[in-house]
């Protein structure tokens, strides 16, 4: 276990931001890292994949733990846990994609500790909350030494485990715009088991319809590229179209073409790509039927 670090349990957001701010001359090895639920970071310290000089615990920042689902959309603090998502009936009704991802996430003890902010910041291509949040058009609120800014989650990742955050920046909030009447969203996690397994392919879709036509579609893919990503070309094929079986099949093939999966111990690249097409087709069909 990496042991050469200081641990500061921040009392409030200002304390956390001050403790995370890079001090002069601390280049090289990552100076400070936020510690939220620890379900990624403690494992990474043990494997020495993370070797920070300082850990800043944000577990006492109760102001970052809240969830609001109302006419203004869906919004939450970065410390909202996966269990908090799972236990919200309002979220289950408004965002079955995100609620469904919470249901198939890890096991109870990890869900009780794991936070939404940590899932986004860990940068794993298989982070299960990210495709649903991308399909819900989420933006991330970042606070750091230079102030507050908002970034679309679809623009957040810049490469494998790399993102737009500057040193010392903390994710504080995640917000999704209101969903218009006539919309539906769904997520499916394909894994080796139903419980406590790493995602082989994750697909989230969100559709908005009016007068029998699709007004807007968002499709997000997990575990099939270096970063979770939107299948923009497939989305463009659906906008303005009537979603009959051929239109859905074309979009599903386009989504599969957007994937750049790898072979690993869980599945081959070819299987993953094929499953993107299958899952996208099924989810689009079900979402379209749900809108009616």
């Amino acid at each position: 276990m990496h042991s050469d670090f200081d641990l500061h349990l921040a009392a409030d957001l200002d304390d956390a931001l001050a403790s995370l701010a890079p001090a002069a001359g601390e280049a090289g090895r990552p100076a400070a890292m936020a510690l939220a639920g620890g379900t990624n970071l403690i494992v990474d310290l043990r494997g020495r994949r993370a070797r920070p000089r300082r850990l800043v615990g944000i577990g006492r920042l109760e102001g970052l733990r809240w969830l609001r689902v109302d006419a203004g959309g869906i919004a939450m603090g970065a410390r909202t846990t996966v269990t908090d998502l799972l236990e919200s009936p309002a979220l289950a009704a408004a965002a079955p994609a995100l609620h469904g991802a919470a249901r198939v996430f890890a096991g109870q003890m990890v869900r009780n500790a794991a936070t939404v902010g940590g899932n986004i910041a860990c940068g794993s291509p298989a982070a299960d909350l990210v495709p649903p949040l991308m399909a819900l058009d989420a933006e991330v609120v970042l606070e750091g030494p230079a102030g507050t800014r908002r970034v679309a989650l679809a623009d957040f990742y810049t490469g494998y485990k790399a993102d737009v955050r500057a040193a010392g920046e903390l994710i504080t909030e995640i917000r999704c715009p209101p969903r218009p009447a006539g919309s539906a969203n769904l997520f499916y996690k394909l894994a080796r088991r139903q419980g406590d397994a790493i995602t082989v392919v994750g697909v989230a879709v969100a559709l908005e319809a009016a007068a029998g036509r699709c007004r807007a579609a968002r499709i997000a893919l997990g575990a099939v590229a270096p970063v979770p990503l939107r299948a923009r070309a497939a989305e463009a094929l659906l906008a303005g179209a009537t979603l009959d079986a051929p239109a859905i099949a074309r979009a599903a093939e386009s989504a599969a073409a957007a994937a750049s999966p790898i072979d690993d111990i869980r599945a081959t690249a070819g299987y993953r790509r094929e499953m993107v097409a299958v899952l996208t087709r099924r989810l689009l069909t079900r979402a379209w039927q749900a809108i009616g």
Partner: peptide, 27 residues
């Protein structure tokens, strides 16, 4: 396992189960 996979180390923290192997003692 000491990495959150097995649940053998579970304890209640304020009544909520967590894996004690993924929690630092100071926390």
């Amino acid at each position: 396992c000491e990495k959150g996979d097995c649940g053998a180390c579970a304890v209640l923290l304020d009544g909520v189960a967590v894996d004690s192997c993924l929690t630092l003692a100071w926390q």
